[in-house]
């Protein structure tokens, strides 16, 4: 990630072709035999992140089997599938959160700006600043609202002085649509907010370090319907600036917020496609069974 070019328009052709090379979904020989081929086009043009043949193991157990998937710009990719199928595991690969789990191994390529994020010399610190994450249960730090937002900018040294930090906190809260609700009590503990507000606080916290990609792992599963609606709206707005990958167990939510949908089943990526197509006209039998509610 050290080679990032801010202007972004002077990269070599060699790089260009390598990244845009069509993916072979049935690539390597090391892949286990019971792997299912993915139906639909896993690639997009000009992706923000590109995963190729990702396998994840928890000790001996394989949780993700040869999954390839692109995360495009300005889009929300929804990942659905029965619980335990590996959605969270896959999502956590994208900012190497699996590093923190003992016994978890990831193989395959996950490219960001042409660099493999698992490659040598790649530090997780800037990667995670670039690929932020919002978790299932809102997890504000036991600090004030202000300190929650300021946490990222502080550790990364993003703000030169207090005014700048104030500004970052304000803009982040505004983008997360929380400013109006909390501007008078920035110094009160973040844990005192309601569930939905807490989750928006966590989104604001993520935004405060200017990520490119935001990963969300069932961000609404602990919230009531009204809070959920607010977050969904927020996600739709955030799409303007960020790529978003969201895991959800609610198909309605996937349908409402996402442009593309990926259906996982027992560690396999079964089908990927435009959200509309996946929900109205699934190709794979398993996808159809799932969205028609035959299992879940």
């Amino acid at each position: 990630m050290n080679t990032i070019d801010i202007s972004g328009d002077v990269m070599t052709d060699a790089d260009n072709t390598r990244v845009n090379e069509p993916l072979k979904t049935s690539s390597t020989a090391t892949v286990a035999r019971d792997v299912r081929e993915t139906v639909g086009d896993v690639t997009v043009s000009n992706p923000r992140m590109r995963c190729k043949s990702v396998n994840v193991y928890y000790n001996e157990k394989q949780a993700i089997k040869n999954v390839s998937l692109d995360i495009g710009r300005h889009e929300v990719v929804a990942m659905i599938g029965p619980s335990g199928c590996g959605k969270s595991t896959f999502l956590r690969c994208l900012n190497r959160m699996n590093d923190t789990i003992v016994g978890c191994r990831v193989s395959g390529e996950i490219l960001m700006d042409g660099d493999d994020i698992n490659g040598n010399g790649i530090d997780v610190v800037p990667l995670r600043a670039q690929v932020g994450m919002v978790f299932q249960k809102p997890n504000p730090f036991p600090k004030s609202i202000y300190e929650n937002i300021a946490f990222g900018p502080r550790i990364h040294g993003l703000a030169k002085d207090k005014t700048e930090l104030d500004e970052v906190v304000e803009t982040s809260l505004k983008r997360a649509g929380l400013w109006e609700e909390v501007k008078d009590r920035l110094l009160q503990p973040g844990t005192g907010l309601s569930g939905g507000q807490q989750q928006r606080l966590c989104i604001a916290r993520t935004i405060a370090v200017n990520p490119e990609v935001i990963l969300m792992d069932e961000p609404c599963s602990a919230l009531d319907p009204i809070a959920t609606a607010i977050i969904e709206e927020l996600i739709d707005e955030l799409r303007q600036d960020y790529s978003i990958a969201i895991v959800t167990h609610s198909m309605q939510q996937a349908a409402r917020v996402s442009q593309r949908t990926a259906y996982f089943h027992l560690g396999d990526l079964i089908e990927v496609g435009e959200t509309k197509q996946v929900f109205t006209n699934p190709i794979h039998q398993l996808t159809e069974d799932y969205i028609t509610g035959r299992f879940g």
Partner: peptide, 19 residues
Amino acid sequence: SLRDGAYGLGATQSETIRR
């Protein structure tokens, strides 16, 4: 979840612990 939150923001382990 608190650790995850800090790691997810790019905090190093010692920063997570200390802060």
